[in-house]
Write a protein that binds this DNA or RNA. Structure first.
Lengths: 126, 126
DNA sequence: ACAAGTACTAACCAAAAAGTAGGTATCTAT
DNA sequence: ATAGATACCTACTTTTTGGTTAGTACTTGT
């Protein structure tokens, strides 16, 4: 996790967009290659770190941890670590995270409808 | 518009995600800093290039054109150029683009509900 | 003759996102 | 004694996204 350069035009436009449009705000929270997929997998039930990792075979550990940390910081999910050894950590959706379900559903519906060019194999986010 | 490196892990994961999850598919189409904002502005009525530019004062011309070209290639909007001089070009949503409205609405609703930290000034995407 | 408006295009560079390759500590089973 | 499992962490590099600056051609208004 690198520091962002707060004075960059990119950052300024980002902040401006966030205050202008709640859609952009939402996009900032669930955008990127992995976040929607993580949220989807947690939508059924809470999962341990290792379960998530096996559910998302292509993600690297660095990416998984990084995305989980960001989602936690954004209060979309909760991390519960039991102080045992070997470690036992569970991730689950917060209310805000669970409330994204209609958004994911709307996106899934559109994606399924308007993509003649692609056949989805699995899983279909619901 | 630079060429992407098709053999990169990034690209491979992107393609894999696209085939695995319609949510990711949708996200790829409307993600980024500007696309949702452009779609929002066109949702009311078709606009000329210059009108869009004035509606989005912070976007640079390069970004605007680039996003418009990508949205056009993805068949979310249509570009109609009248062969006159000075040029007269109009952008409007396709059916697929208009069908994104429930998605944008769901995102706007979530964004408005779960952002105590931010007050949106305008415009509120609907 | 010159500025302003139309809708772009291209070369270049900075910043962010994503990926690679290694590492940590503790415990249990072999 | 070593291997595998638990859940991470760090330094680094590659790839992609976004931004800066300059330019095009043609017409109308001053």
């Amino acid at each position: 996790m690198y520091a962002v350069k707060e004075s960059s035009t990119n950052q300024l436009n980002k902040q401006a967009s966030l205050c202008k449009c709640p859609v952009t705000y939402t996009l900032e929270r669930i955008g990127g290659r992995w976040k929607a997929l993580i949220l989807y997998h947690l939508s059924g039930k809470p999962l341990r770190y290792g379960e998530l990792k096996r559910a998302l075979p292509d993600i690297t550990e660095k990416m998984l941890i990084q995305q989980l940390k960001e989602l936690e910081a954004d209060k979309l999910l909760t991390r519960v670590a039991q102080p045992v050894v070997p470690p036992h950590v569970t991730y689950s959706l917060t209310e805000a995270g669970a409330a994204l379900s209609p958004v994911l559903k709307a996106m899934a519906a559109w994606g399924l409808n308007y993509s003649e060019d692609i056949t989805f194999n699995a899983p279909v986010c619901k």
